[in-house]
Design a protein around this nucleic acid. Sequence first.
DNA 1: TCTGGGGTCCTAGGACCC
DNA 2: TCTGGGGTCCTAGGACCC
Length: 420
Amino acid sequence: MKKMFVLIDCNNFYVSCERVFDPKLNNIPVAILSNNDGCIVARSNEVKKLNIPMGAPYFKYKGLLEYNNGKVFSSNYQLYGDMSQRVMDSIKMLLSGEIEVYSIDEAFIYLDSNNTENLFELFKEVKEKIYKWVGIPVSIGAGATKTLAKFANNYAKKNTKEGIFIFETPYKHKEIMKSISVEDIWGISTRWGRRLKVLGYCNSYQLCHADTATIRAYLGVVVTRIVKELQGISCIELEQVKPKKNIMSSKSFGTLLSNIEPIEEALANYVARACEKLRAQKSKAQGIYVFLHTNKFKHYESQYSNSSTIGFEYPSSDTGFIIKQAKNLLKKIFREGYKYKKTGIILLDIIPEKEMQYNLFFNDISNKDYLMKVIDEINQKFGKKTVFHLAQGITKRWVMKSEYMTFRYTTCWEELLKIK
DNA sequence: TCTGGGGTCCTAGGACCC
DNA sequence: TCTGGGGTCCTAGGACCC
């Protein structure tokens, strides 16, 4: 038996997390909202049946959901993050092979050849154990390439009773491939899908047998790679956890803001968050990009958006220093007289701490490194923002809305599930 | 009233170098 | 009169993912 890529994907993950702690949510429409309760980012099958699309603005569908006795929740990332960890740990215990945690709710596994006797039975067991241990239902797809594993997983989720599908060869699954449109293939979306259809490649089976030279000429190497992957030739490797090259932190405000002070506070918080991530991956940034804009959906109000970049003299991961730099950039781009919706920062040109180049006049800032380490440790132990920079502020006029938040059942003592 | 946040990779074109 | 050819690096923008 050849080695195989397997994709395990949690079904309606955020919704499933909420259902673990409240079984009354089973069999009714449940939707999870984005930050600020703006968009619908996760839907139960009942919500999907109401034809509510992914990413839809909540206010447009609020009535429909209420009419159908649906429930909505704000995103509870601490809960979802912890549940995700449990699912991933379970997978590692149940399957042997290299694993790539691809997103919060899915993982690729490059299965070792030693556990391939009766794959279907094996996957059934994996699925049952994850449900028993963590309470989350998953779908499992397998194939010779990542693209085929993804294809198999999508098919398993929508069209099989067990939620498991093993892709063998394009010839064997000819009819299934013919029924899947090109834009439903991983890596191809509406634009490329449209162009492929113009070239006469409408379904997966047609694309699988496409002329690669034509594809290369009209759509470039990325799509060519996907065609080969569909044929069973692996071109997309399992990715190792790589340190990020850029780190972004940005959020919309809970309300529109006209003064610079609360925006500065918000930005300082995003900087602090980004710097935490930066230090966690033991890196330093060599510059930052700051942006600010009004609410582009309010056509009747005057619009403004701007951004600015600065490079540092030395690579840094010092929150205090970077807050100062970010505030300077913000002052440069801020204009009076607008109602602002969002600001954010991207840390640029990130390099490993170890590779830092010093110049002749470098002042020793190791004390700052030590200070940051202590702050990170305290916040990890005693909770987020136990210690913070004054610039992060206490007015909190910018904080995001989350009106429908459930408890952090698994990561917070005060919010443990209570049995009455 | 009300429209998320965080990423990656590829390509084309310009600046610059010898 | 007549003005090359080959390369690298950077950036912006476009496409995709969850």
